[in-house]
Simulated scan of single mutants.
Amino acid sequence: MPETEPESWEYSLYIPNDVRAVTVSRRTLRLILTMHGLINLVDVAELLATELVSNAVRHTKGPAALRVRWAAGVLRIGAWDADPEPPEPPRPLDDPAELEDGRGLALVRACSDLWGWQPLSRHGNRGKYVWCELAR
């Protein structure tokens, strides 16, 4: 019997500015993907979500959110935060000066099929949404 394509869906997890939110986000994402039969995407998706949520929590002072969407065979993972400033450009992964810090978006760029960011304004609040995509 041929495998059918899962229907489109979307989840948002609003998180406080707390480093523990990174683990909560990663585990929640694993559960979502497992329940939707996308276990083959879990490892890479967890890495990407960890980097995006970690940046949102570490580099801003306000709340954040993890957003996960599946549509047309593409998984979009994104992190919203209240800081409207653009993210730092990805640094090369082989830069020895950046062995411990500053590699997050370089990992996102290397492990995803597509990534980007956009400024957001909602109800007078400004912020940004950094996202990446994985194709099935």
Rank of each mutant, 00 (worst) to 15 (best):
M1K: 13
M1W: 13
E3F: 14
E3D: 15
E7T: 15
S8K: 12
E10Y: 14
E10H: 15
E10L: 14
Y11W: 11
S12E: 15
S12T: 15
L13A: 07
P16N: 10
P16L: 11
N17F: 04
N17K: 08
N17A: 11
D18S: 12
D18W: 09
V19F: 10
V19W: 08
R20H: 13
V22I: 07
V22T: 06
T23S: 14
T23D: 13
V24Y: 04
T28H: 14
T28K: 14
T28Y: 13
L29R: 02
R30Y: 04
L31W: 10
L31E: 12
I32K: 05
T34N: 07
G37R: 12
G37E: 08
G37Q: 10
I39R: 15
I39F: 12
N40Q: 14
L41C: 08
V42M: 09
D43T: 13
E46A: 12
E46H: 10
E46P: 05
L47V: 14
L47Y: 13
L48Y: 12
L48H: 13
T50G: 13
E51T: 03
L52G: 05
L52P: 03
V53D: 00
V53I: 03
S54H: 10
A56Q: 11
A56E: 09
R58F: 11
H59S: 02
H59V: 04
H59P: 00
T60L: 06
K61Q: 14
K61V: 09
K61L: 15
K61S: 15
K61N: 12
G62E: 02
A64N: 07
A64C: 10
R67I: 06
R67A: 08
R69Y: 00
W70R: 00
A71G: 04
A72H: 08
G73P: 07
V74F: 01
R76D: 03
I77E: 01
G78C: 08
G78D: 08
G78Q: 10
W80R: 15
D81C: 07
D81N: 09
A82K: 12
D83P: 06
E85W: 09
E85Q: 14
E85L: 15
E85K: 15
P86K: 07
P87N: 11
P87W: 02
P92W: 05
L93C: 04
L93I: 05
D94P: 05
D94A: 06
D95R: 02
D95L: 04
P96E: 05
A97F: 11
E98L: 08
E98G: 03
L99V: 11
L99A: 09
E100M: 08
G102L: 03
L105Q: 02
L105S: 01
L107I: 05
V108K: 00
R109A: 02
A110D: 06
A110L: 03
A110G: 07
A110R: 10
D113Y: 00
L114S: 13
W115V: 02
W115C: 02
W117E: 00
Q118N: 14
Q118E: 13
Q118Y: 02
H123Y: 13
G124P: 06
N125Q: 15
N125T: 12
R126N: 11
G127S: 05
K128L: 01
Y129Q: 03
Y129M: 06
C132T: 04
C132Q: 00
L134E: 04
L134I: 04
L134K: 04
A135D: 01
A135V: 01
A135L: 03
A135E: 02
R136W: 07
R136H: 07
R136G: 06
